[in-house]
Structures are given as C-alpha cells and as structure tokens.
C-alpha cells in the first residue's frame, strides 16, 4: 500500500485538557479522506498537527509529499488583493501561479478586489487557490465550503474532484455530511479525542448494523420494510405484489445517510 499520510499514536493536550488521545489512521495516495466529528472533537487540532503548524505531545506524523493547506478565512491582511496573495505564496514556494487554476476558481471576477471586500465564498476560493499554488501532492481542507452558496459549493466540489482525477490526495475536515458522502473515499470519525471509526461509508453502515429500509409503492398504497437483507426482503415483497395482482409504481432502497450513521457511531461512543 502506498500511503500519503501516516498518523501513529498522536496525542495533544492543552493544559489539563486532552484533545487527541493516541489517534491513528493512514491516508492512501490519491484518495479523498474526511475527518468527521462534532464541535470540539479535535478535528482542526488533528489536521493542524498533521500539517505541521501545531506541535503535538506524542506520536508520529508522516506526510509523503508536498503539502498545500487551505486555511480558514481571516488569516490574510485586510488590504491584500487575491492576485497579490497568490503571487506572494508562489514566490514563497518558488513557483509561478497557474493562471488556468486561478481562472477556474473565479479570479477573473474578484482577483483585483481587496481581501476585506470579498464575500465569504470568494475568500474560501482564494484560500483554496493559495493551497493549490505550490502544486502540492496532498491538500488539507478545513471546512472548505462553510458559508458558501450552492453555486459556489458545486464549483468547489468540482475543483476537489479535479484534484482526485489529477492523482492528488486530499484530507478534509467538515461538518457537511452530504459533502463528505459525495466527495470522500473514506472517513475517520473523531469522538472525545479518539478515532472511533475509520473506513468507507459502506463499512460504516455495516459497523453501525443499521437496517436498510425497502420502500415499495403500489396502486393501492405504500409498503415499507426494515431489513438487513435487501434481496430477501424485496423478493418477499414482490411475491406478495404478484399474488395480489398489484401494480408497482416505485421502488426505493434507503441505506441511511452518513449523518445517521455518524450520529449512531458517536452516540455509541458516549
């Protein structure tokens, strides 16, 4: 297996409060990996320890490749212009700005405004652009679409998917379950400073032992069954539909959302 990030036994405390308790996970090269957790679970601290911008007390972090970090807003001076910030970051990293990338992030629209005049979405896109400037192998995204409208969110999702197509690795911390479900290959759930789950969404579904909900709509009404075996349940329902000579209008299988699984997993850990 080719890893992009290895986190082993990571521990971090602030005075008497332990934020990270021996956390371990690995991120594969080319995958989009999410850190999930409720507020105060330690996502941002974990991310910052891995990025190397926060010191940790014990454990080891290995990052195999060049990093790009999307910071939260308010880390830039109020009077800097997006193009100036990109040029400064490019000079720090000894590269030239990728004009195509800047254009795809909407710089033609807001590149000459001052930072304090940008909308939240534009600031997020600027911070994403700054993370991309050094042509990194691994990108860290902390709440990448928080406070962005639907259009901006879709554009950012498209940028993040583009990363995966280019073979880059991304690790993101987010509250937005739909976003994580749509973008990420694997998730790690942080609860009380520990990793309580690490795997794919399908593995999470199995881990929480959640039943599937099979929903059959016929000309005489709706029929719903909760089951662990979709095939058996569906065959039984279809058999009865045939026997009663009903007409099927719609069939749906609800495997539960990541949000439901996440809540279940965190509840179990409490």
């Amino acid at each position: 297996m080719s890893w992009a990030i290895e986190v082993i036994g990571l521990q971090k405390s602030y005075r008497n409060h332990t934020v990270l308790k021996n956390i371990e996970f690995r991120v594969e090269k080319g995958e989009i990996f999410a850190l999930l957790g409720v507020n105060g679970a330690g996502k941002t601290t974990a991310l910052e320890c891995i990025e190397g911008v926060r010191r940790y007390d014990a454990g080891s972090v290995r990052v195999y490749g060049r990093m790009g970090i999307q910071f939260q807003t308010s880390t830039l001076p109020a009077y800097i212009r997006p193009m100036e910030a990109v040029k400064l970051f490019a000079k720090w990293n000894g590269v030239k700005p990728d004009v195509g990338m800047l254009s795809s992030l909407g710089f033609n629209e807001f590149g000459k405004k001052q930072y304090e005049q940008l909308s939240t979405g534009q600031k997020r896109r600027l911070h994403l652009a700054l993370a991309f400037v050094g042509d990194p192998d691994i990108i860290f995204l902390d709440e990448p679409t928080a406070g962005i409208d639907v259009e901006g969110r879709l554009a950012l999702h498209s940028n993040i998917r583009e990363l995966k197509r280019a073979g880059k690795t991304a690790i993101l911390a987010s509250h937005d379950m739909a976003e994580i479900e749509a973008l990420c290959d694997r998730v790690a759930i942080l609860s009380g400073g520990r990793i309580v789950f690490c795997g794919t969404v399908a593995e999470l579904t199995r881990a929480v032992g959640r039943k599937y909900r099979v929903h059959v709509e016929t000309d005489v009404g709706v029929w719903e069954v909760e089951t662990e075996n979709i095939t058996d349940a569906l065959l039984k329902m279809l058999g009865e539909v045939r026997q009663k000579n009903l007409e099927i209008l719609d069939i749906k299988v609800d495997r539960g959302t990541l949000e439901q699984h996440f809540v279940e997993m965190v509840r179990r850990d409490m």
Binding site: G52, M67, T75, L76, P77, F89, W92
Partner: peptide, 17 residues
C-alpha cells in the same frame, strides 16, 4: 497585532517562512 492575531503564523509555518 491584526496580522499576528489573525493566525498568519500558521500560514508562515506551512510555507516555510
């Protein structure tokens, strides 16, 4: 203080500045 209070140290660290 506006610059250092805004978390610029993280940006510097991340970019080796």
């Amino acid at each position: 203080s506006e610059i250092y209070g805004g978390g610029i140290t993280k940006v510097y660290r991340a970019n080796g500045v």
